[in-house]
Design a binder for these strands. Structure first.
Lengths: 133, 133
DNA sequence: CAAAAAATGCGAATCGTTCCTGTTTACAAA
DNA sequence: TTTGTAAACAGGAACGATTCGCATTTTTTG
């Protein structure tokens, strides 16, 4: 049985789950308003935070001043284009849970997770830069 | 010959270079004011941004809402304590420049860098949690 | 030293996010 | 169906980090 889920909460989760663009709160808000014009931005923020706490959504950190979210909580990394801000999934994940344990032991820490962010230019932006010669 | 360096700019860079705490702009501001009480917060921000552009300082991203900086630009990773927010250096760096090239080729991207963030509890905070049993 | 360029201080503005408060909704018991 | 209660919500105010605008000061150049 699913948890307590109000209509709007469910709609917000569906929006996050239905995209691979790693949306910001604002993006989710714009999108949700097409179906539910009476949802407030505060509700989007509240629920995104709640989903992260419950573990069904993951924050992938702040990109250009906005926090970005991902409903795919399986292990994977991200690439961020420094030109257009796009966030793409990258399957490579260098550290196994055991490796995290070893690193933690070596430094006297309890390492729970690792996040890898690649940065550079996505295909489109790399092409644009080329053409400016 | 070093670049154009005003007195205050130099002082700000020295502060960043003199700590391993991966400071925020606010931290640098508080610290610099002990020697130069007339430095403004805007100048700290302006110069941190400039140092990042010049490459002599690196941003290590946003931690608890504040951007954190590191004057050690050699390859290394970071651990962030989810309880106290401390940022520690971790020598492990899983991707060589060649590996980044390969990953980029595989996905049609120009991958320029990778940043690894470990998260969990630092020694002190792990101990505190233990004691709460 | 004078003129031009660069850097700064300070307060206002911006922007993402969170908080506050009165209202609405969901759900269970009567 | 009505009533009571807790959770969720809307909307706007508040907040905090960062940036901007512009007058003033410092540094550089000739």
């Amino acid at each position: 049985m699913r948890e307590n889920f109000s209509r709007k909460r469910e709609a917000i989760l569906r929006v996050v789950e239905s995209t691979k663009c790693h949306p910001s709160a604002e993006w989710v808000y714009e999108r949700i308003r097409k179906e539910h014009p009476d949802v407030s931005l505060a509700t989007v923020y509240r629920n995104l935070k709640r989903f992260c706490e419950k573990g069904c959504v993951r924050s992938i950190g702040v990109v250009n001043g906005q926090e970005r979210f991902d409903a795919d909580t399986s292990p994977h990394s991200h690439f961020i284009c420094r030109s257009c801000g796009a966030v793409l999934d990258i399957p490579e994940t260098p550290f196994t849970p055991e490796a995290l344990g070893e690193i933690g032991a070596r430094h006297g820490l309890r390492v729970e997770r690792s996040d890898v962010r690649f940065a550079g230019l996505c295909g489109k932006c790399a092409a644009k830069v080329q053409n400016k010669s």
